[in-house]
Design a protein around this nucleic acid. Structure first.
Lengths: 133, 133
DNA sequence: TTACATTTGCAACATTGTTACAAATATAGC
DNA sequence: GCTATATTTGTAACAATGTTGCAAATGTAA
C-alpha cells in the first residue's frame, strides 16, 4: 500500500494507508460507510479529504449510482486524474455488490453521428461469482 | 404536459406542469439549478418532491455523474419506476450538454461470465449537433 | 536531528435532502 | 357549479453531506 502512495507522490500517513488497505482488499467497490466502519481511527473530514486526494491522484475512482451512496474502487496503475476507465460498473442483483469489469476495445460504441471518447457503464445483472455459484 | 400527468395518474398542478414543461422543452438533460431558475414560482422542497414523484412514476429519470449536479431527462412513455433505459448518457465535451442516445439491442454487452440485464452508460465525446456544426 | 512542508482534527459553515403538519388546492360525486 | 375528500404545497425544523480556515501534529528531506 505504501508503495502506491509513494508512486503517486503523496505522504504516507497511517490514515491513508488504512483507507487504501480497506479499498484495495475488496474485489468489489466499497461504500464510504464501509470504509468508516473499518477504519482504525475514524474522522469524517479527514476521510472526505483523503478520498478526494486519492481520486485526484488517480488511485481510486468514485462510482455514483443515482440515489445510492457513493462507492469507491481502485484505479489501474496508469490512471491519472481524468479517470478514462472504459469499463462496466456491474451491480449484481444477487449479492448487491458493485464491481468493475473491463470491456474489450471493440465494445466501444461507434455511432457515426457521435464521437465517443470514453464511457462508463452502470449495469445491473449477475456477477461472475454469483453466476458460477 | 397535462396529458402526461393524467396518463401517470397524478394531480395536475401549475407547479408540476411548469416543471414538466421545463424538462420536456429541452432536448438535453437539465440540471436541477436550471429548473429552479426557470420556474414561475420556486420552492426548494416542492421541487425536490416533484422530481422524486416524477422519477417514481417513470416520467423523468435522474442522471448522476460523479461530482456533478444531478440532471434530469424525460423517460419513454412506456417507462415505469424501474427505469431500464439501456441508452447512453452522452456529455458533449464541446457544448457540455448531456443527452440520451438510444443504443441498438446488439450493442448490449454479453460477456459470458456475466449476465447483464440492463445498463446505463455515461459517455464523453461530441454530440450530433456539435459534430455536424 | 532539525527545518520545512504536509496532513490532521476541530470548529464553523454551506449545501443538499427529509419529515411533520397546517393551509391551500385539485378531483370526484352530486 | 358546488361540496366533500384526497392530495399537494409551503413553512419550519432537522439530518446528512460536503467545504474551509487555522493551529497542532506528523511526515519528509537534508
Amino acid at each position: 500500500m505504501e508503495s502506491i502512495l509513494k508512486k503517486k507522490k503523496i505522504s504516507e500517513t497511517p490514515f491513508r494507508i488504512n483507507v487504501l488497505e480497506i479499498i484495495n482488499s475488496s474485489n468489489t467497490a466499497v461504500a464510504m460507510s464501509h470504509i468508516e466502519n473499518n477504519l482504525d481511527k475514524y474522522n469524517r473530514i479527514t476521510l472526505y479529504r483523503t478520498l478526494k486526494t486519492f481520486t485526484k491522484k488517480g488511485i481510486i475512482h468514485p462510482i455514483q449510482i443515482a440515489g445510492k451512496e457513493i462507492m469507491y474502487a481502485m484505479c489501474e496503475d496508469s490512471c491519472g486524474a481524468e479517470h478514462q476507465h472504459n469499463h462496466l460498473h456491474l451491480e449484481c442483483k444477487k449479492c448487491k455488490t458493485v464491481s468493475c469489469v473491463d470491456v474489450a476495445e471493440n465494445m466501444m460504441p461507434n455511432l457515426s453521428a457521435y464521437q465517443i471518447d470514453s464511457f462508463e457503464v452502470y449495469a445491473k445483472g449477475i456477477c461472475t461469482t454469483c453466476k458460477s455459484a
